[in-house]
Design a protein around this nucleic acid. Structure first.
Lengths: 133, 133
DNA sequence: CTGTATCCAGCTCGATACTG
DNA sequence: CAGTATCGAGCTGGATACAG
């Protein structure tokens, strides 16, 4: 018997820690994911090109994040099996659909960081004042 | 003298690790931020309500993330100074503009996690096969 | 109810050296 | 060129106890 308090057909929700959607969110909620996917959205790129494009990323984190994205079907790794090696990364369709939203987020950050900086300054000032009295 | 190789008026970019926009991105790129802001977008909420809504978050992480969001001007903390305490959190205008995109991301995760799960299964199967020969 | 303070196990991630 | 392997400092974040 089912009561209103024990729903059976709950929609999948990121707010449910046991739902697989939460795992998906955690893959997305990474600064490197938020840079790699938009980078690949503009053009397919090789390891070295990504390393140069994404300032501050280490080889380790690049490889690690790319692997994870590949495993989740967002990025396609195209190894041309040549010597010297030539490996190209590009977005899958799924990756493209996600990158559209991530690019919006990147743009939001680029447009609004001055406002965040001003807010931080105000906050820190206000709270140092309070501590000193 | 200025050459094409030494641009002076580069646009702020999240791809530049020294740009403040990168800091903004790192604030956003947190699973708790991606849940708290959309939660507050539906309605202002109190500490306890957020704790119940966001499954799996600890009191420590909730407070810590809320403080950071408040400091950056995305969330407004409204302490009614009563006994017992009654504190309500709501989005600033800036927070609202960000939460719109974050909500899209949450929805993307809820709609596409089955595809990610299928991709993971395929990937893991393929790669365990390769290791065994 | 809304937090703060402290401990600390475990994970992250950069640095470095090495490989096909 | 495109990685892999390893080490270890430092940060993250849960658990627990306490407080106004």
């Amino acid at each position: 018997m089912q009561t209103p308090d024990t729903p059976v057909d709950e929609a999948p929700s990121v707010f449910d820690s046991h739902c697989s959607a939460r795992d998906a969110l955690e893959l997305i909620a990474s600064k490197w994911t938020m840079l790699i996917l938009p980078a690949l959205a503009s053009a397919p790129m090789r390891n070295g090109a990504l390393l140069r494009r994404i300032d501050g990323i280490s080889q380790k984190m690049l490889t690690q994040t790319l692997r994870d994205l590949e495993r989740n079907g967002l990025v396609i790794r195209d190894d041309r099996q040549t010597v010297p090696p030539h490996v190209e990364y590009r977005l899958s369709q799924l990756g493209q659909s996600l990158s559209r939203t991530l690019t919006i987020l990147d743009t939001w950050a680029e447009q609004n960081f001055p406002a965040l900086d001003r807010a931080k300054e105000r906050y820190d000032q206000q709270h140092s004042v309070k501590r000193n009295r």
